[in-house]
Simulated assay, not measured.
Amino acid sequence: MNTAIEDDSTLTNRYQTTVPASVRRALKLKRRDRIHYVIRPNGEVVLTRARDESSQDPVIASFLAFLESDLQEHPENIRSVTASTFAEAERLTAGVEVDLDEALPEDDDDE
């Protein structure tokens, strides 16, 4: 990459943003890829593709390893997702509305 790329994005009320297409192309990012941030003392932020899984949450990693092991040891417990499965999920979530742009409660803003 010989030319500097500059672009902007906006934070939602939930502190989420979309990575601009120009940045995604430059970093060859795909859906579900991880991004690594380095914040320098002068406030400059360097955004790169995450290289390894070592920064993964150890609790989530352990849980996923447990699931993988359990599925391998007990494949008889694996069930197909059927139309009735979806119908049951819809029944259980009926009336639940989610607004991804909803502001976080005050006590959640202090990260």
Rank of each mutant, 00 (worst) to 15 (best):
L92Y: 08
R34C: 10
E6Y: 08
T17V: 14
S62E: 11
I78P: 00
P41S: 13
A103D: 15
T93I: 03
V46D: 03
S22F: 05
R51L: 14
V19A: 02
Y15K: 10
S62Q: 11
T48H: 04
S55E: 14
L64H: 09
G43V: 04
F66T: 11
T10R: 06
R25Y: 08
A89I: 12
A21H: 14
H74A: 00
N77I: 07
T18M: 12
M1Y: 10
T82N: 04
V23D: 00
R79F: 06
D108G: 11
D70W: 05
R79M: 10
T85E: 06
D33M: 03
R25K: 13
V45I: 08
D8S: 11
I39P: 00
D70P: 00
T18Y: 08
Q72M: 10
S9I: 10
K28R: 14
R34Q: 09
N2L: 10
N77T: 06
D7K: 01
A50D: 09
P58Q: 02
D33K: 01
E68Y: 10
A94N: 14
S54C: 15
S62I: 03
T12Y: 02
N2D: 11
H74E: 02
L100C: 07
V45A: 03
E76V: 04
A50I: 04
N13D: 12
R32N: 13
Q72K: 12
S22P: 01
S69G: 06
D109W: 15
R34F: 06
Q16D: 10
S62M: 06
P20T: 01
R32D: 13
R14S: 12
V45R: 04
Q16E: 14
D8C: 06
S9P: 01
P20D: 02
F66M: 12
I78C: 07
A87R: 07
T3E: 13
D110L: 15
E53P: 01
A94C: 12
S84M: 13
V23M: 01
A4D: 12
A89E: 07
T93D: 03
F63G: 06
T18K: 12
N2Q: 13
D99P: 04
Y37M: 13
R32H: 10
L100Y: 13
T82P: 00
V19R: 00
S69R: 11
D108K: 15
E106A: 11
